[in-house]
Amino acid sequence: MKETKIYERPKSWKKGVHTHYCPGCGHGITHRILCEVIDELGIQEKTIGIAPVGCAAMMYDYIDVDFCEAAHGRAPALATGLKRTRPDQVVFTYQGDGDLASIGTAEIVHVANRGEKITTIFINNAIYGMTGGQMAPTTLVGQRATTCPEGRDPNLAGYPMRMCELLATLKTPAYIARVSVAQPKYIIEAKKAIKKAFEYQISGKGYSFVEVLSNCPTNWGMQPVKAFEWTVSAMMPYYPLGVFKDFDKEAE
């Protein structure tokens, strides 16, 4: 009988390790997609990742490429220094919503506007995960968090920030897309987008940014399945999936 392998550990996933992420968390899926893309592009030995502050701070324990840690919000600046001194390397930042859309707003806007040839994976789960469920800039109106126990009030905290749309107002970035890992059909699209983002970096087209609508079952207080349903039912209407900027399409 001929054996067909339908599942194996990506080469760039470290052997024999299991993540510390909560059951049902979207980080694991996104990490795996990232590894598959790195393998498919054959760039494991020339990829430098920037680990964020937050739940994914220890992503280097799982993904087997060079890594540098960044202070909260500063990954895009760090990536700039890495890429400018080593343009032959493939550099990515992996940042959550507190990191990217709050404390690191200046850094993300300017890395995109300079058109640094790096890739950003932005995990939007509408809450601060690691610190225990505080309100994020992406927390939905009415969504409860430990620092908005009555739900987010737009009169006090403003409306949730749509980072793809905000960055797409800039002329420089090459690729900006929003995807999700909430269901298999979305995961397939997410992988395509992340691969394209890396390809744009490698071919020198410019800055690429992929927002991933994820979840946080623990801090949302939901079962994993329910949490991913909520990503689809509550987050997607406010954060529509799609491509907001595409260098190739603009060139046509």
């Binding site: 540098c68 960044a70 600046a77 760090l78 700039t80 220094g81 890495l82 400018r84 200046a106 850094e107």
Partner: peptide, 22 residues
């Protein structure tokens, strides 16, 4: 080489960190 005018000193020192890291 390269000169980058950072958006702030906060960003500048992190660019320095990235450059030094290589």
């Amino acid at each position: 080489g390269a000169y980058v005018q950072a958006e702030s000193e906060v960003a500048a020192i992190n660019m320095v960190m990235g450059g030094g890291a290589t």
